[in-house]
Write a protein that binds this DNA or RNA. Structure first.
Length: 659
RNA sequence: CGCGGGGUGGAGCAAUUGGCAGCUCGUCGGGCUCAUAACCCGGAGGUUGUAGGUUCAAGUCCUGCCCCCGCAACCA
């Protein structure tokens, strides 16, 4: 019988910078699933890679003084290296700058154009010439360009559009009647927010930059990055718009699961299926939007604060400890959080105490009582049944869970078995049996049962923690490592000698280690934080918001600022925006209205009477309808997520110059 | 009234179609000595955010209210 195909993908990583641990969660998750499915008996094809086009990358390369290709070569290699650090077992690592992919995407674009699903139209809007960008009315600030503040003018530009509405009904029905969107809770979000209100035609070409795949029949246009990126799932498999697909494509498409971050669910559950419907290609079976891994203490600190990188974390704690944490600690449909404290707690409490210690004490007894030779289970007793039956039902239990992406629960099931084995030792007290020569056979049986249970755990764990699984089976010195070998209890051969007994996980002195880490990692990170948000999907298509380090300025530049002391004399909520307060600020000679986005940091009442420093010559702007004539200075502690007013102190004359 | 998710012992999470409120950590007490000061057992701790309603039965279904978090918006 031939094995059933199973095609799994991750989202391809955007090559704007080094990936952080949040991105790596996805690859570990996908890897665990891929490894498990292979072991379970599927013919798995696991694809990942990098998404390398777009204006943002063009800009980044420019800043770095290299060509876009040089830039993405470097970042892609770095991402690939990180995937390897995490132990990823992907079958193919693709890059969207691959000429093979480019040609396919061009052909697909042409096909959709010929079919009439893509048409040439005009992009209308307010255009800022120096910034070469279009803005909608709502994006304008005070009628001016939000980026540079200069005049904008109405303009039209030719562009290609994808008529999504052609497929709206078909898509709505598919989503409603299938379990395409996972987890289920996301289904309504997509339907209610985007699909049911009506799909607008999507602008699928750009002329404002050139780092992308050109439209071959109209080369001043570059194909929209999402069209380019999403296509990777089929182009590299051998999809051919003319119908001459490769065997690989015929075998593996449609994909069994696209594993993606919940933030890009929209692209994968709306644009992607519609593209496929338009191309007359079957739709993927499932899209799973996994939650985010947050770094830091509270929920507040997610995009702020400490970026943690894979290589640092793996170097510090070891690959399997990090994988364990990611797979075990992430809830199914809620964001999880990573802290060093919790990580160490898990390592000590579970990997060391439950798993490492069980293996160690079992092997130690076998060495001590049987000279390292695996004894035969010749004296079975009733008390063994519970352990054995639990071991026997665990594999299928995990298989069921993995088919639903319940990875954390699968890990839990393995550890429950290990806990049961620890309990079994107390129930059977082998050290007591060892004192009585007539109990030798019973003692051997107990130890055999333990080792066979460890074999079960080792085989199962191999999908999640490959190195550890390997070590466990190495200690048992067994070749019985297949999933099928778990259909019966007794695969371990008696009479063989154990392999070398190594420590699986070493205990960590939490306090000492935390101190060291703080010293090592604390000073950096603030400047690197900008990277966190950059992966966000939205930013790919919008103009990039520059968060980079500010350039050096001269004293003259500084002289252009007019800073004055003032006092808040009136404060109210902005009627139309949650995050904004509207203040009346007394500057001595005049009163200004200033809007400030600090609603989540301060109680409104506490602010009246607050002394402040104001940028007084800032060009006035309208924020959601309220005029703001200046800016209040505040200091921000990113770590604690709090703000503090900059002031000249109580009793200082209002309107004084600050310099 | 823009859309969606959520409030469960000190902490983090579970509870298929309504049917005895569970798990891990922590805490308190006990046991054991094979083992990486580990392992095993037991106890304490919850009127499941709040006010009503439906039902023989509600964490679960319905309604109002209070909080929190995403998306969108917005951050001078």
């Amino acid at each position: 019988m031939t094995k059933k195909p199973y095609y799994i993908t991750t989202a391809i990583a955007y090559t704007s910078g080094k990936p952080h641990i949040g991105n790596l969660y996805e690859i570990v998750l996908a890897d665990a699933l891929a490894r498990f499915m292979r072991s379970y008996g599927y013919d798995v094809y696991f694809q990942t890679g990098t998404d390398e086009h777009g204006q943002k990358i063009e800009l980044k390369a420019q800043e770095a003084g290299v060509t876009p290709q040089e830039f993405v070569d470097k970042v892609s290699a770095e991402i690939r290296r990180n995937w390897e650090i995490m132990g990823s077992s992907h079958d193919k690592f693709i890059r969207t700058t691959d000429p093979y992919h480019k040609a396919k995407v061009q052909k697909m674009f042409k096909k959709l154009y010929d079919k009439g699903d893509i048409y040439k139209g005009e992009y209308e809007g307010m255009y800022c010439t120096p910034c070469e960008s279009f803005f909608t009315e709502s994006q304008l600030v005070d009628g001016k360009c939000p980026d540079c503040g200069r005049e904008v003018k109405y303009a039209k530009e030719e562009a290609y559009f994808f008529k999504l509405s052609n497929y709206q009904k078909q898509l709505e029905e598919y989503i409603e009647t299938s379990d395409f969107i996972q987890p289920e809770s996301r289904k309504n979000e997509m339907l209610n927010n985007f699909i049911r209100p009506g799909l607008k035609d999507l602008c699928v070409s750009r002329t404002s930059f050139s780092w992308g795949i050109p439209v071959d029949f109209d080369p001043k246009h570059v194909i929209y990055v999402w069209i380019d990126a999403l296509s990777n799932y089929i182009t590299f498999l051998g999809y051919d718009p003319d119908g001459n697909h490769t065997e690989e494509f015929k075998k593996f498409w449609p994909a069994d699961i696209h594993l993606i971050g919940k933030d890009i669910l929209r692209f994968h559950t709306i644009y992607w299926p519609i593209m496929l419907m338009a191309l007359d290609v079957p739709l993927p079976k499932k899209v799973f939007g996994h939650p985010w891994l947050l770094v830091g203490e509270g929920k507040m600190s997610k995009s702020k604060g400490n970026v943690i990188y894979a290589d640092e974390l793996v170097e510090e704690f070891g690959l399997d400890a990090v994988r364990y944490y990611l797979l075990k600690e992430m809830p199914f449909a809620q964001d999880g959080s990573l802290t060093y404290e919790l990580l160490i707690e898990r390592i000590n409490g579970e990997l060391v105490n439950i798993l490492g210690n069980l293996v160690n004490r079992t092997a130690a007894m076998t060495n001590k009582y049987f000279g390292g030779i695996i004894p035969a289970p010749t004296a079975k007793e009733e008390i063994d049944d519970e352990l054995i039956s639990m071991a026997l039902k665990t594999p299928q239990d995990i298989a069921d869970k993995m088919h639903e992406m319940r990875v954390a629960d699968s890990m839990q099931a393995i550890f429950n078995l290990l806990r049961r084995a620890n309990k079994y030792i107390d129930e059977t007290t082998p050290w007591v049996l060892a004192k009585d020569e007539s109990k030798k056979e019973r003692l051997g049986t107990v130890l055999y049962n333990l080792m066979e249970t460890i074999r079960f755990a080792g085989v199962l764990l191999s999908s999640f923690l490959p190195t550890t699984g390997e070590k466990m089976l190495g200690i048992l010195n067994t070749d019985e490592r297949s999933f099928e070998s778990l259909s019966a209890f007794g695969g371990l051969k008696a009479g063989e000698s154990l392999g070398e007994v190594t420590m699986l996980f070493e205990r960590i002195d939490a306090e000492a280690r935390l101190g060291e880490i703080q010293k090592k990692l604390a000073p950096k990170n603030l400047l690197e934080q900008a990277e966190v948000k950059e992966e966000k999907a939205e930013e790919k298509k919008e103009e990039p918001k520059e968060e980079a380090k500010k350039e050096e300025i001269t004293i003259d530049d500084f002289g252009k600022l007019e800073l004055r002391t003032g006092k808040i004399i009136e404060a109210k909520k902005h009627p139309k925006a949650d995050k904004l307060y509207v203040f009346k600020v007394d500057l001595g000679t005049e009163t200004r209205q200033i809007v400030s986005g600090i609603a989540k940091y301060f109680e409104l009442e506490s602010l009246v009477g607050q002394n402040v420093v104001v940028v007084a010559n800032l060009k006035p702007a309208k924020l959601r309808g309220e005029i703001s004539e200046g800016m209040i200075l505040l200091a921000e502690d990113e770590e604690k997520d709090v703000l503090s007013f900059v002031t000249a102190g109580e009793g200082f004359k209002l309107g004084s110059i600050v310099k």
